[in-house]
Design a protein around this nucleic acid. Structure first.
Lengths: 144, 144
DNA sequence: ATATCAGATAATAATCGTTACTGTCAACAG
DNA sequence: CTGTTGACAGTAACGATTATTATCTGATAT
């Protein structure tokens, strides 16, 4: 479960609560811009910088994770538990998946790295884009 | 094997040949900046823009792939065959690996996506960083 | 050879995501 | 009550990338 500010010893401010609340249970993997746009309606004074610094703080404290899945912008995930992602290469939708196989790399293929983590991404076209034919051949060849 | 310009019907220019040659067999997964810096010595007139557009062209033609592995900048890989990456979270070194398991996702976990590709990343600390103690606790917790 | 034309390039400007800086304000401590 | 600390908004700065524009090159037709 996601840790709260009080658990990690940083001050509970309206802005931080807003971002934390926005993220909690959010499955959309929003970008900083998404977060700003959505919260701006309710908190008209909140600035971009606050969103960025708050996200950085949360990430440093391990409350959220930052995803490099989207080549254009970072996206944030309140789910810090071990899970993986399925990405629509057309609309950039990201959905969580759990991979049904064991990702332990054999010693001999690890090139002497000390392995600290792993991540699997699946790329594809989501049902909506498929239904509406909202994808190109190029989309289908994307797999970053 | 990597397709050549002549095979894909685009003009062979000195700049394109230079970038293609630089990339060929290159295992370092360089960024656009790396490429520019290294080629600039030999081709003093080549600009950033040329590097970017050439890389975009090559990518569109499927000659190279663009990696979103590094949160700060795109990196390029002449190896377009199916392979995966092992990333040092301290020095950002990227080495190729082939994963020893089958990455076919069962129907029921695919959320109705039409799957077009997959990619596995392993994160860790490379032998050099490990030996020189050139890594922090934070590095060890990075797994984008 | 020379004119023409298409595409490639250099240089630069613009854009986008992100970070740094600065002045202000509020909460709390002494 | 006053000094200190941290958070914030606003804005400037920055780095990576993309768009624009004018120039150049090389192939072809004349």
């Amino acid at each position: 479960m996601m840790a709260k500010y009080k658990d990690i010893g940083i001050k509970l401010t309206p802005q931080r609560l807003a971002i934390l609340g926005y993220l909690e249970g959010n499955k959309a993997h929003p970008s900083a811009e998404d977060i700003y746009n959505d919260l701006h309606a309710k908190y008209p004074t909140m600035s971009f910088a606050t969103v960025y610094t708050t996200l950085a703080t949360l990430r440093a404290k391990g409350c959220i994770s930052e995803l490099s899945i989207d080549p254009d912008k970072k996206r944030f995930d309140p789910n810090t538990s071990d899970h993986n992602h399925l990405i629509c290469t057309s609309c950039k939708r990201v959905v969580d998946i759990t991979v049904p196989f064991d990702l332990t790399l054999p010693e001999d293929s690890a090139s002497d790295f000390m392995i600290t983590g792993s991540h699997v991404e699946f790329f594809g076209i989501c049902p909506e884009c498929k239904k509406n034919n909202r994808y190109s051949r190029e989309d289908m060849e994307k797999c970053v």
